[in-house]
Write a protein that binds this DNA or RNA. Structure first.
Lengths: 74, 74
DNA sequence: ACCCTATGTTAATAATATTTAACATTATGT
DNA sequence: ACATAATGTTAAATATTATTAACATAGGGT
């Protein structure tokens, strides 16, 4: 398993709560590809801040209810 | 003036409120360069979500009190 | 068993974020 | 006036994120 980024998210859960939205549908709303959504859900990399905000807008939740930073806080 | 990203921030203000922290000092805490901090403050580009969270941690504020998305919410 | 949809996964490429170095401006202190 | 610290700004290089296409698996419906 490849290394994960230190930010978790519950996009997958939110998709199901929102009328079982598919990765494809979410990707289309964002103007991204479904592979990018899959990669974000699997924490392969940290999305840009802008993409994170747009995801939060789609689900009508504050950003930090969807993404949570799990890194050390030095 | 070059185009700006659709996310505003009040990092500059927060630096001053936090003991007049300089761009250089903030950059060092984050492991970034001062030019990167300058560029973020001037909205030249959107920082990564991870950097945004680490900035929020440094100032002990929720992320969305520092960064606000100003794009259309489709 | 067969089709169809949703998702996982990988590799190569494109786009964007970040670094580095260099030089500029502005304000402050002596 | 001179020196110094903080910041602005640019260009070129590197690192990371996002796209695309291709192929894989798992589950549901018929």
């Amino acid at each position: 398993m490849a290394k994960q980024i230190p930010i978790s998210n519950n996009i997958k859960t939110l998709r199901f709560l929102n009328d079982e939205m598919t990765q494809q549908e979410l990707a289309e709303k964002l103007g991204l590809t479904r592979q990018t959504i899959a990669a974000i859900e699997q924490r392969k990399y940290s999305p840009s801040l802008e993409i994170a905000f747009r995801i939060a807008n789609i689900f009508k939740k504050p950003l930090d209810e969807i993404f949570v930073y799990e890194g050390r806080d030095d």
